[in-house]
Design a protein around this nucleic acid. Structure first.
Length: 476
DNA sequence: CTGCACTTAAA
DNA sequence: TTAAGTGCA
């Protein structure tokens, strides 16, 4: 008798699940297990809303398993202790059984240390990865890791063989031991809003809606993706974060959309979206190979930047009252729905780091505390890119102008009006710089600057020069 | 070594 | 068009 524990971590799905598949192939019975780890739920990088999304996904997985004659075991505790208990309980119920643990490999420093300690004591088998191509699969000719995205993506595309990828179907039935028992699933965290229903079914629907058919948004992705007012992105990031969607399925959908594209812009759209999936692999690889990025700059010399770190300015940024409408809209969107458009992420990050001279780690932590898709690899990579401290970084002298970014990517101001209602009567021409309205115009649109909406927290032209000085000093 | 290219912005 | 910079083939 062989019993496999399928230890679920960030692969909350039955479809195309390599860890589950390996567990089934080896064993006679599979015990699906999710461990609610206090080190993760109690961390300063946790979001209650993300926890709610996770719990919603677990509830759906529970019912999906029930329809397959199986069940989900939930346990609270440190993974090492819980796995020890489960193994012990299985040995009592099935003394003759051989037991193994199967899980998908994970690459954050915490996950690697955790798994290494467990593997030293228990038969832990790690398979596959949350990336499409795992760390180590895409390397330079000399075997070293890429630190620039474009050559990485070229090699990635030469390595990935879409025609050879055969997603694994979800099991129809899963034989599961009747013991040990499960804790009840907690309901303490706020459930996600209607924008992001959890679960692999919702993820599959969203992937299909984004990629399938002649009218699919992916066909316009190359241009619409930069427009937060148009919602031209897939909004699949929370599902990829928890593995409610197989990243291989996503990549295959991109290849298929490219093959079936009706015209050149549509083909381009599919290629650009695939690149976004490759960015995800890239940052997973960077965090694996350069784990020091978790606490500091990829380039150590950038740790010498003398941040202003003004608490009041940070609070204004967090709460969306910087006086720059595009920045404020984005920050309010984040708090309202636990997600922010990618173009907006770049702009608010540049504003925090370059205009307010606040340590990028503060922004990184705030994002982790609010994003449904908050992921240590992608979030860290994005922040270091924006701060100019990372791999493949934007040179530090490239500083986003929050007004021209708004005018360019939210030309009618729809995005600003949606999230900053006090500006709703400001004409499109002035909506990204409302302080330029005359006093009479401010009265007419019922938005007095300094009263109904804040003055700009800092003058961008001044801040730009200051940031260049401070960055230059760090290298002197 | 040398040229090319860079999730590119601003002027 | 430039570039306060640099990885990669």
């Amino acid at each position: 008798m062989k019993i496999a524990i399928w230890w679920i971590r960030r692969d909350l799905r039955l479809d195309d699940n390599h860890a589950l598949h390996a567990a089934m192939r080896w064993s006679d019975q599979v015990l699906p297990l999710y461990i609610i780890d206090p080190a993760l739920t109690g961390s300063a990088y946790t979001s209650d809303r993300r926890l709610g999304f996770l719990l919603g996904g677990l509830a759906l997985l529970q019912s999906d398993l029930a329809t397959r004659a199986s069940r989900l075991v939930i346990r609270h505790g440190t993974p090492f202790a819980v796995l020890g208990q489960i193994v012990e309980e299985l040995r009592v119920c099935a003394p003759a059984a051989t037991i193994r643990i199967y899980a998908e490999t994970d690459y954050s420093p915490y996950a690697k240390a955790r798994d290494q300690a467990i593997a030293a004591t228990y038969p832990l088998h790690l398979v596959s990865s949350p990336a499409i191509l795992p760390p180590g699969a895409v390397v330079k000719d000399d075997g070293s890791a890429y630190t620039v995205f474009t050559p990485y993506s070229r090699r990635w595309k030469a390595t990935f063989r879409a025609e050879a990828v055969k997603p694994l179907p979800a099991p129809v039935i899963l034989s599961t031991p009747a013991f040990p028992e499960s804790d009840t699933l907690p309901a303490s965290a706020p459930p996600p809003g209607p924008e992001f229903p959890p679960g692999e079914r919702a993820a599959a629907r969203r992937l299909a809606a984004f990629t399938e058919g002649a009218e699919a948004p992916i066909a316009r992705y190359a241009t619409d993706r930069d427009r937060p007012d148009l919602n031209g992105t897939s909004q699949l990031s929370p599902y990829l974060r928890f593995g409610m969607l197989s990243p291989r399925r996503a990549a295959l959908a991109a290849y298929r959309a490219e093959a079936e594209a009706a015209d050149e812009p549509a083909r381009r759209g599919a290629q650009v979206w695939l690149d976004e999936l490759i960015w995800r692999d890239f940052y997973i690889t960077i965090l694996d190979r350069f784990p020091h990025v978790r606490g500091g700059s990829f380039r150590p010399e950038y740790d010498k930047i003398r941040w202003a770190n003004d608490q009041a300015a940070f609070a204004a940024w967090c709460e969306g009252r910087t006086g720059y409408p595009f920045v404020d809209a984005a920050m309010r969107q984040l708090r309202a729905i636990g997600w922010m458009h990618n173009r907006a992420r770049m702009v608010v990050a540049s504003f925090l780091v370059k205009d307010l001279l606040i340590d990028w780690r503060w922004g990184e932590r705030w994002f982790m505390q609010h994003l449904l898709d908050g992921d240590p690899a992608a979030n860290n990579g994005g922040w270091q890119w924006a701060a100019g401290t990372g791999t493949d970084a934007a040179p530090y002298f490239r500083i986003f102008n929050p007004v021209s970014q708004g005018q360019k990517f939210d030309p009618t101001g729809d995005y600003v009006r949606r999230w900053v209602p006090e500006l709703s009567a400001v004409p499109p021409k002035q909506i990204h710089a409302p302080w330029q309205l005359s006093a009479a115009d401010q009265r007419r649109v019922r938005c007095i600057i300094g009263q109904d909406y804040p003055h700009p927290i800092i003058d961008h032209q001044f801040a730009r020069v200051r940031a260049l000085e401070v960055y230059k000093q760090a290298f002197a």
